[in-house]
């Protein structure tokens, strides 16, 4: 799954799209990958409260990334 998502990011970047059409999907894919690493590899799938907390923090960070990237 992580490999497929990473390949999708690379394909999107190579497709030539720019602006919000590039920034939003790429950062969304990064957020999904980070969620999967936290849930499956770091074991937060067994601690849903902590997983939600980490997801919220990551979502805010990625939202800040997107805002700054689109403002440039």
């Amino acid at each position: 799954m992580l490999l497929a998502l990473s390949a999708a990011s690379a394909a999107l970047a190579a497709s030539g799209v720019t602006g919000a059409a590039l920034v939003l999907p790429i950062l969304t894919l990064a957020g999904i990958k980070a969620h999967l690493i936290l849930k499956d590899y770091l074991g937060l799938g067994t601690a849903p409260g902590w997983l939600r907390g980490f997801d919220l923090g990551l979502a805010l960070l990625i939202l800040a990334f997107a805002t700054l990237a689109l403002a440039a």
Partner: peptide, 22 residues
């Protein structure tokens, strides 16, 4: 050790799109 390695992976997942793609 694996948890540290996953953390390194996690950081790269966030770093790569920002530095290389956006």
């Amino acid at each position: 050790g694996a948890a540290f390695w996953h953390m390194v992976d996690l950081v790269w997942i966030l770093l790569f799109p920002v530095v290389y793609l956006l």
